[in-house]
Amino acid sequence: MRKPKRPQVNLEGALAKRAPGLLLSAARLLFLIIVGFIVLYPLLYMLVYSLKDREALLDMEHVWVPLTYHFDNFHEIWDLISFGASLRQTLVVQVLSAAIEVFVCAYIAYGFARFRFRGKPVFTFFLILSLLVPVQMYSLSMSVNFRNLHIFNTPFVYWLPSIFGVGIRSGMMIFIYQQFFLGLPKELEDAAAIDGAGPLTTFFKIALPSSGVVITTVAVLSFVWHWNEFYLASLCFLTDDAPLSMMMRFLPTRLEQIGVYPTWPTYTTLVSAACLLYVVIPLVLYVIFQRNFVRSIDRVGITG
């Protein structure tokens, strides 16, 4: 009934107009699915294998969709890496340190980005040096240093450097903040300064509130880098109060202690379960918080 009212020419015209757009989004989706599959593969692998028992593992006909599911692997791994205790250690030691760095690095980076002062090239040189040189380079003298400061084998090996902005990868975080602050329009801050706001007020009231995107980004990176940090942990901690990352690092050794060798069939299933347990918390947190990747510049109302 409608057809005669709407001339066909118009419909075709509309289609022709939209066709390139539709084609583009189809291509985009296809591209994302292909690349996404590469990324998703290990997670699928872990998921499937962590739910297999010995029989399912040897069942070659149902590799990707096993006939039965078992949660025993998770129970076993949970006890083996004492998940509760090591997660607590990760949260108290590493994640707290990560949170401190997110704030402290922004504070320091503001000094680098917004002010001109004598000797700035020298300071910048040391900033670049600190993000270029890996911890392994100076671990020997660092552990001696920690002993001299009487903080060896305490959580302060994480906390104290973080408070001073020289913790795990804080050089990189300062650098990220610095580049972002440099790109922030200066006018609003100058206006605040002219109105009599001190540098601290300007930083806390103007610069920080307009930095939502970069704060979220650095928070994510800081969290992941601390969550995965095991070098400092294995250097400065005893195995009794090891964080999760260190437990994962020494998982093959632990498995050997209970008689599961890499050649043993159940090795794959147990390691998959452990990897899944380890990955799932950061992933869920990211899914929850990624909504914060929103424009915050517009909200402050700076124009051109």
Binding site: G36, V39, L40, P42, L43, V220, L221, V224, W225, W227, N228, F230, S245, M248, R249, L251, C275, Y278, V279, P282, L283, Y286, Q290
Partner: peptide, 12 residues
């Protein structure tokens, strides 16, 4: 695409 960030930078 956040997965590689977690997985590729650690013991996993």
């Amino acid at each position: 695409f956040f997965l590689p960030v977690i997985i590729a930078s650690g013991a996993v």
